[in-house]
Structure formats: structure tokens, C-alpha cells
Design a protein around this nucleic acid. Sequence first.
DNA 1: TCGCCCCATGTAAACGTTTTCATGACGACG
DNA 2: CGTCGTCATGAAAACGTTTACATGGGGCGA
Lengths: 368, 368
Amino acid sequence: MHVTIRDVARLAGVSVATVSRVLNASAPVREATRDRVLEVARDLRFSPNGAARSLSRQRAGALGVILPDIYGEFFSELLRGIDQEAQRANHSLLVSSSHHDSRGIGAAVRAMRGRVDGLMVMAPDVSAPMLADVLPRGVPTVLLNGPAVAGDAFALTVDNYGGAIAMIRHLVAIGHVRIGFIAGAERNHDASERQRGYRDGLRNAGLPYDAALDVRGDFTEAGGWRGTRELIAVASPPSAIFAANDAMAVGALSALREAGITVPAGIAVVGFDDIPVARFLNPPLTSVRVGIATFGERAAALLLAALAERSPPGGTPRRDVLPAVVIVRDSCGARVDAPSHRTPRSGHPERSRLDRSSWSSTPGGMRI
Amino acid sequence: MHVTIRDVARLAGVSVATVSRVLNASAPVREATRDRVLEVARDLRFSPNGAARSLSRQRAGALGVILPDIYGEFFSELLRGIDQEAQRANHSLLVSSSHHDSRGIGAAVRAMRGRVDGLMVMAPDVSAPMLADVLPRGVPTVLLNGPAVAGDAFALTVDNYGGAIAMIRHLVAIGHVRIGFIAGAERNHDASERQRGYRDGLRNAGLPYDAALDVRGDFTEAGGWRGTRELIAVASPPSAIFAANDAMAVGALSALREAGITVPAGIAVVGFDDIPVARFLNPPLTSVRVGIATFGERAAALLLAALAERSPPGGTPRRDVLPAVVIVRDSCGARVDAPSHRTPRSGHPERSRLDRSSWSSTPGGMRI
DNA sequence: TCGCCCCATGTAAACGTTTTCATGACGACG
DNA sequence: CGTCGTCATGAAAACGTTTACATGGGGCGA
């Protein structure tokens, strides 16, 4: 049915070995022969069978990506970064999402065995031992934002805790003393780290912790909407709402608008992630930038590096943390008095330099 | 290095054939034997090599997805739909993006040969003949939103033209007579269809066409921002801006806010696609819903169906068009007088029923 | 008791590449 | 003129599955 390397070999009057050598430029072939082979291959529109190739070489030229979900701009950005880096190294991407429990992840991992050279796994709501149990031991793996896991897996995380601390510091600095928090999904690692940062941030500032202001969310716009309704129904509502991610902040803005509360004059709103759309919201959203696409790129690069050096990769670190930086826009109220700073005179905000007034999660703003 | 089926066979004291039969339940095996095999397989954490399996069966159990880009919520939603349907049929997804020209698409297609059973290709800015040239003839293919292409490929498109017509009809119905348009990327099929709808829509309504109100965009927020600056600088600016997609509408809202123009009182804004975040914007965005995730699902389902029946699929249509429906929210000004309709009494807007006041792209609102 | 059939299992040939090793031919050098 | 490299090529063995076919043993009917 399909045209194979034998067909090409037969028509070109050479052996399959020669065809392979021509197509991969893996060994010198006489020019006349090469031209003949190439012509036949082109005429037949031959392209080698990837499965056979993977089997023969012992590598697939593909990376596996396992995600809990693909909803919203966060994952889109993450995939974009991963894809970009993978493509640079001529690797394909095998993507599988909607895996929340270890059983599902295990199944996805098994399905990828032999078709990928390495794995990137984001499993924020699976515990470390459960995860370690289903991860393959032969395949290099990078864990994204999950709990640290023993074994040979790399771990790449965002400084969730530091970012949240920095955001609270910023809110306190501009005068807020009653700060509400909409947490992420339960049992989610990122969620709990950001929540920990929120609580410790309050303590650092000497502010009291009020459980009524610390509500549960789920990282969706709808969750942020509900959380906001909850927060504004409190006897003495907060003057600022810190949503554990931008999607929820979007929901918060929506809920406040419906309730007739202006932002930031009535209540300030800030988020986390700095998804691309954040700067285009009304008002533009103050958020914690984690560089999602960069995060994906880094993950892919790390995996590719591990793949390059055969055995236990020596130089590359086993664990890496990306910095998180507060990006100040209008939604927190810090800049409403000086709007002239914000609007670029010409061109577009996307193109303008990064806002200068940013708080780093660490003193120097560098990697931790 | 890796544990293979031979290892399992050896330790279980059976032949590789028996192991295969046990793992695939492809033939009856004595219970005692099966248990032994399963135990050994579990102990060894054996999982079959996908490449070898693909090669042996003549199918890969994977679908290829080729996209022009992965930026923004549109692609995220599309992938989500595709993944959902693929997963239902136990298929993996091989994703490759950032392919704008036919050369890049050709390379991606070749890289997927033998690793996927079918292809979904979105190439809105590649001409039909160019595309037909690089598409493989052996592999079932579904074209997403591209120009119709001769050959054995399916084509699934959104009713871009009808949706744009319907949107203009709506804007005219609520009193707008000067309607600006921010077009999509040049040479992009969706973009030109939507633009055609805009122009014909004006003509249908007996409104004059003003080239100054028909500006070029690029489907990004930044492009919408720039286009809006252009439109409000016109001598007599439009009272409504129709962005060719929601991302640009977001940019438009941002630009108008910066210019101190309220929406919809000052200028109305509407979009196209109805990405999930649209209902959460300030103000909530009136848009043309195309059901992006559903679109992806349909595409995957179509491909899987073609895969199921061997030769030329008889029952399934060669070409299919998804309806586009106008979803009215606040940004167009149609509902500002009756905000009570909008806010659900309890729960969340996401959960509320579809807005009732919707205009279909076709009289019955059904598939064309 | 014999022959037949079915059932469980093993053997080996695919699947389409890559790659090692072998084999010529040919030129150079002594 | 013989020998040794070098170079282009071919033959065949991997790679790890699945599956068609072969085989043996046992139960059962006549």
C-alpha cells in the first residue's frame, strides 16, 4: 500500500542500504547514484516510516507532554514554549491532557513508551509518591510545577511562594490592610504554595489573618467569579482581592463589575501568572509574571539536554526554580494617579518595555 | 536496556506470543498462565514499545495535528476539543505548530508519516494547490478552516461569512450605521471570508462602504489595539467596531479604555469566535459563537470515522460547515438598557443558559 | 478404543527502517 | 606486478511487536 524504502531501492536499482544512506547523508554515496535515488524518492513521494525509524535507531525524536488540562491561556502559552524549543531541536510533541489522577497519568505514560525520548509531566494535584510510582524509570522526565519527587526526574517549578509574598508586600506597600485571597484547586501544589505565600505575607506585614477572607477557588474564571461573590458578602469586605491565578482574577473583575463595584477604586484586584491577555483587561491586571512560555521552553531545553548527554546528566541541576516578578498595572490602584506613565506614546503596549515598577520575588529579582 | 516482551516471556516461562495474547486479550489463554504473565509484567513494569507496536499492526493509534500557531485561547480550545474526542477513541495526539507556509507543513507532515493514522491540518494562509501538493495521499486528512482542496481530504469549516453577515445585521438592527471593521491576517482564508461577510452585510443593509473604516489586523490583541487607534483617528469615527476575532476585540477594548472612550456608550465593540473569556470581559463581549471546542471534536470525530471504515468513507460528507451564531452581551450596547436580564440570580454566568437573544447565521440556526 | 476436533501454546514471519559487516573494484605504492 | 587501502555498495541482522500457522494434548462421541 504505502511506498517503502524497498520500492525506492528497486526503482533506483540500488539496495535499501544505499537509499538509507542517501536520505540520511549518513555515508558517502557516489553522486550519480545519489541523484538517481533522490529523483526516484521524489517521484514516489517517499517519506520514511517514523515508527520503523524509531524502532531501528533507538530514539523517537519526540517528546511527550502530559498535562492536567488544556483550558485557558496558561496551557496554551506553556505548550507554545515547549513546542518552540522542541521544534528547534527537530523534535515532535506527543500531547495528552485531562489527567488528574495517577491512574490516568500512568496510562498516558504507558501509551507514550517507545514513541517519545523524554517526558514532561505536569501533575500539580498528584502526590509525590503516587507520581513516582507511575513514572517510568527508563525515560528522562521533567516534572513541571509538581511536588518534588525522588528518583531520576528533574523538577522545574515556579517560585509560587515567593511570588505571592512579593504581591502581598506590594499590596501592603500601597496601603491595603484587608486583603482577600481566592485560592486555587484543592490538593494542587501550586495552589497551596501560593496560599502559603499569601498567609506568610500577611504575617510578615504584621496583618491579622482572617479565615473569612481566604476562600477556595479552582483556577477557572467561574471559580474566581464565585469566590468574589463570597468575599464581597463578608461583613467587612476586603479592599483588595488576590486571585491565585489570572483566570480567576478575570472572573473577579467580572463579578465586581456586575456588583457595581469599580476596580481599583472600590476594590483592587490582582492575579498570578501574567497571562498574555492580562495587560489588555479593563483595568489592566496587576499580576505576578512567571513567564509561562519561557517556563515551557526551559522545561523542553532541560529535557533535551538530559537526552543529549547519555547517562546521568552531570552538569544540569536536578531541580530549578523560575523567578516570579510582580508586574504593576492599573487594577491594584497603585498607578491610577499617574496614568500617563502607562500609555506608550506610540506603538503598542505589547511592544513597550516591561513596566519598570516591579517587585521581584527575591531581593535581586534573579533566580533563586 | 529496556525491558521487552521477551524478558517477560522468559521469566514467565512462556513464548512471546502468549505474552502478547495476554496483554492484548486477543486470544484465550489459560487462567494460570495469564496470571503468571500478568504478575511478571507488573513486577518488571513492562509496557509495550509503541513504535514496535505501530509497525507491527499497521496503525499507530495517534492523530496528527498541524496548526499555524498556538497562541491565545482559540487554539487552546481547539486542541481541547480534539484531544477530548481523540482520547475517547484511545488515540494520542501528535501536535506541531508554527507552520505558515507549505514548506513547513510539508516537513511536519513527513515527520508524522508512520506515527499517526490520520491528519488534521489547519492552514488558513496556504493556498489550496500548494496545500494539496504537500499533503500525503495515503493518510486520511481533515482540513480545518482552510480553503477547499481537491483530492481525498475532508474539509471542516466554520460559517465565517454567514456569521459576519449575521453580526452586521444585528449591529444595524440596534441602530448602528457607521461600522468599522478590523480584518484578520492577510491571505488568511477565515479572515477574508469574515471580511467578505462584513462588506456584503453592509450592502445588504443598504449602508455605504467606507474603506477608511475597513482596516487591516492580524488576529492578535496587539493588532486589534492598533486597528482601533486607526479607526478612532478617522475624521468621522465609527459608532461600532467589528473585530474579526475576539483577541482583536480585546485589544480594541483596551485601546478604547486608554483613549477614554466608554464601551458601548461611546463606541460599541463586537468580536468573532466567542472564546471562553469573552463573557468575562468588561464589558462582556458580544461575539459570534463558533463553538471552538466543538469544532475540534467534530474534526477528530470525522477523522476517526474515516479511519474506522477502511476505503473511501461513503456515509460521511466530504465537506462540512459549522454554524455561527451571534451571542449578544453588553459590549454592543443592545442590552445596556436591561441589565437585569443578564445577571443570573444565583450561580454563575458560565452555568447559565445560553443567552436567548441570538441571531443565527442561517434562518433556522441549524447547520447549513 | 480410535479418531476427531478444539484449545492452549509455540515458532517464525512479517512490519520498514538503520547499521554492521562483508565484498568487490580500483588506485597507489613499493 | 603484487599488495594494501580506500571507497562505494550489498547482504543481513538487528529493533520489539503482532499474528498466521503449526503442533501437541486431551476430551468426547461413535
